[in-house]
Design a protein around this nucleic acid. Structure first.
Lengths: 349, 349
DNA sequence: TTGTATGCGTTATCAA
DNA sequence: TTGATAACGCATACAA
């Protein structure tokens, strides 16, 4: 099956002009007579001429495509971020090729290679939870490929980054639990080496400290594979429940972990918030409809995607090599709901 | 910023061969001597030669890109479908350009144009809820562009389609409500002209009939804009509640409508399921965590995306024009939960 | 077995 | 003001 389109050559032949004249006329060049311009442009419109972006890419050695690598598309935070990326990219005349690492280091490396072989003009990356080294990105950056990180950024690379205020979001959530009367606040989080993990842990610790609560190593649980496996959260939540000094609250650090944690608590017959308060980072749009309504920290996902894209296009289109890289930090929002309301009477499940 | 890559010419120059020899050696052509092949391939590997897909596209007049148009990315059904599309496309060596119509006819037309001007090899489309005519797709199909519809398909076009068994899913859901003792089952759905709307409505009507329940026009409510606006569902749910013969159940036909409906019911102080049972189509992964746990019909979104992609690539790569178009129908699944359990004692909100 | 020439669609350079 | 030519990277018909 073929799909024929009008080319500059076709127009030139039809109008008895040379391709270069047509090309210039189409671009409105000053060196073409008004009459010829008019003639060419009318003809182009009439036959719906569309410049071939592939030919243009070849000529300009740029694809006007940006590659996006996220851990998973099926995740509210990332799909909202992709929405923002999409909006910003289309506005600037770029298109977006999305790919997923599926939380695997190997697949992240593979898909990076694939995008590079596709000649994307730049890369927008949120690291997989297995990624504890970034040589594959460093090498590309050194060869001149612009890379911007968002959300799960690499601290080992000097480049543009967009993240949310993880420390602040974590601090607020933990302080909120302390304010609600919780004294033993556990923390479920992702891979220890990720930036978001460290920053959220720091906010959690500072809030404990400021509220006169001790930090307990045993209350912090790390998940390395995006907590895809419900039985894994069941096991870890079970550990917390069996702890001699059982926590009275859980603060969970990522989207899927939070809902998985709620599921595990309910499966274990734990009443939330009476037996265990729960607060988590999540961009789930139905958090207020959960049982119980979930107190959560949301990230401005759309804006983060948008900001990252604008920074990336800035790098791509910069005339001279960029050496000063900006990091933008966007605020999170705490939504207070029933899952952290300790003064409510207990409800039997 | 530039990003230099090794080309066939570079290899030819370095090895004292002609570009055509190198090209053939890289592709393992039989007309090249084993020694030369080895030499070239070793050199290519060593310097990490990557064929330039843009040049190849220009040569072959195909982009190996497929365009996807969905109403919204931020929607579990569509993000899961995109996941399936992604998986199938990458496996066949295609990449995916995703764009959104945002439930607007104008934006659907625009983004279609954009994808075509990007020279995608084919289109995967799920119609916007405002789309009641498909001339923009027909014209492209007539010019030879392969198009496959999924989920929200067009009945006016003869092409490949992938959908779920909307009639069956709807029938099961409605019959389930009837079996739970509901006698006045309302139906919230999308634009009247969409295929999914008609098919789901038909399943609903047949189930009413088979259960000896009358069909009431006033119990069917249509939403034209994807029910993005909570106040709109509040208003419509309010109408149902004020109806002299107030419905005792709602069957909702789409993802976002279902959660919006639950929110409206709760805002109105209606106890679910005691005052009003609720069942809906939704691919929300936390349906079991909602309050109440939501009885729902899920669609095999990943598989639908995958199937549609394979059909599209089949059309793209077909040697001769295809005239026989397949429609694949995949089964839905009913998950029975608390929101439709009429025998449960009422719970005060 | 290898090399030369050409074209995919576009634009920049140089010539007329 | 317009036209001829070359080049982007690759594949291939045709020559040698």
């Amino acid at each position: 099956m073929k799909f024929e389109a009008v080319t500059i050559k076709d127009i030139a032949r039809a109008l008895g002009l040379s391709p270069s004249t047509v090309s210039r006329a189409l671009r409105g060049s000053y060196e073409i007579s008004p009459e010829t311009k008019q003639l060419v442009q009318d003809y182009a419109r009439k036959f719906n001429y569309q410049p071939n972006p592939i030919a243009k890419s070849l000529k300009e050695s740029r694809s006007r495509a940006i590659g996006v690598i996220v851990p998973e598309i099926v995740n509210y935070f990332f799909s909202q971020a992709i929405n923002g990326i999409d909006a910003a990219a289309y506005q600037r005349g770029y298109h977006v090729i999305v790919s997923q690492s599926h939380e695997s280091f190997e697949r992240e490396v593979e898909t990076t290679q694939l995008l590079v072989s596709r000649r994307v003009d730049g890369l927008l990356v949120s690291l997989s939870s297995q990624t504890d080294r970034v040589e594959h990105f460093k090498a590309l950056q050194e060869k001149g490929l612009p890379i911007v990180f968002f959300d799960r950024v690499s601290e080992e690379m000097d480049t543009c980054k967009v993240k949310s205020d993880n420390f602040q979001g974590s601090y607020q959530a933990t302080a909120h639990l302390a304010g609600a009367g919780c004294r033993r606040i556990a923390h479920l989080t992702t891979a220890a080496w990720l930036s978001i993990t460290r920053e959220r842990l720091a906010g959690y610790r500072k809030a404990l400290e400021d509220n006169g609560l001790p930090f307990e190593e045993a209350y912090v649980k790390y998940f390395n594979f995006g907590a895809m496996n419900p039985s894994e959260t069941d096991r870890v939540v079970g550990e917390l429940l069996k702890h001699p000094e059982r926590p009275d609250a859980i603060f969970s650090a990522t989207d899927r972990l939070t809902s998985a944690c709620l599921a595990s608590l309910r499966a274990a017959g734990v009443r939330v918030p009476h037996d265990m308060a729960l607060v988590g980072f999540t961009n789930l749009t139905v958090a207020h409809l959960l049982d119980p309504a979930l107190t959560c920290v949301t990230q401005p996902a759309f804006e983060m995607g948008q900001a990252a894209t604008e920074m990336l296009i800035g790098l791509i289109e910069s005339k001279r090599p960029v050496t000063q890289f900006e990091t933008r930090v966007l605020p999170t929002t705490l939504w207070t709901r029933a899952s952290s309301r300790r003064d409510a009477p207990p409800v039997e499940p």
